[in-house]
Amino acid sequence: MQSEKSQAENMHRRFISLAAKRDWDGANKLIANDYSDEWDNNREEAVQTASELLQGFLYLNIEWETTEVTANQGIAKVRGFAKMNGSGGGFSSQIMSTVNALKEPWVFTWRKESWKPNSWKLVSMKNEEVKKMGF
Rank of each mutant, 00 (worst) to 15 (best):
W120I: 07
G134W: 14
E65D: 09
I95W: 02
A27E: 12
V123Q: 04
I62L: 14
L122K: 00
F108W: 08
E63N: 11
E128P: 04
S17Y: 12
T98C: 12
L54D: 06
N61S: 15
D23W: 03
K132W: 09
A101T: 08
S93M: 14
S87M: 15
V78D: 01
A50C: 04
S124V: 01
D40P: 02
G88Q: 05
P105V: 07
E52V: 12
Y35F: 14
F108L: 01
E65F: 14
N85Y: 12
F91P: 04
Q55D: 14
K21N: 14
S87L: 11
A50R: 04
N85M: 15
N41Y: 03
K132V: 06
L18P: 05
M96D: 03
G74P: 13
T66L: 05
E128L: 11
V130F: 02
E52H: 11
D34S: 14
K21C: 13
R14D: 10
S93W: 08
L30A: 06
Y35G: 01
D40V: 07
E128G: 15
K83N: 13
M84Y: 10
Q94W: 10
S6V: 11
R43Q: 13
M84N: 06
S114P: 03
K21Q: 15
M1G: 15
S87C: 13
S51W: 10
D40I: 07
K121C: 03
N10E: 13
A71Q: 07
N100E: 03
W120V: 08
P117M: 04
N100M: 03
A8M: 07
W24S: 03
S17F: 08
V107G: 00
V99K: 00
R13V: 00
T49H: 05
K5G: 10
A19L: 06
R14A: 11
D37Y: 06
I62D: 05
S36D: 11
N85D: 15
L54H: 07
S6H: 10
I75D: 00
E45S: 09
S97I: 01
V107K: 00
L53H: 14
I75V: 12
A46N: 15
F57M: 08
N33C: 04
E104F: 02
E4T: 05
A20D: 12
L60W: 11
S92L: 05
L30R: 06
I75M: 06
S17D: 15
E104Y: 05
V69M: 13
